[in-house]
């Protein structure tokens, strides 16, 4: 997934903040996963500016799925 995420991160710079959490090394990884009910990796959680969850994507998906989810953020 890294190439897709890297590409989208560059493309959406200034529009969406990407926070990449390595659950093996990030001390808050497990707590963050629990907070957003994420049980698997990779999981992508998209939050609107008010902090509400817009969409959760589990597993590797097509780039178009991510684009659609990113464009739907408010």
């Amino acid at each position: 997934m890294a190439p897709v995420v890297d590409r989208l991160k560059t493309e959406y710079e200034g529009i969406v903040e990407f926070r990449l959490i390595n659950v093996d090394t990030d001390p808050q990884g497990a707590a963050l996963m629990a907070q957003y009910n994420a049980q698997y990796v990779p999981t992508f959680v998209l939050l609107n500016t008010d902090g509400s969850v817009s969409q959760t994507i589990v597993g590797a998906q097509k780039e178009s799925v991510f684009r659609e989810a990113l464009d739907a953020l408010k």
Binding site: M1, E17, I21, N22, A31, A38, P42, L46
Partner: peptide, 21 residues
């Protein structure tokens, strides 16, 4: 794992979290 409470989202932008290993 017991950790500090997760940081509150403070970004003025929408956020995409990716949880990975």
């Amino acid at each position: 794992v017991a950790t500090e409470p997760p940081a509150v989202q403070t970004s003025e932008l929408p956020v995409l979290y990716e949880f990975f290993t």
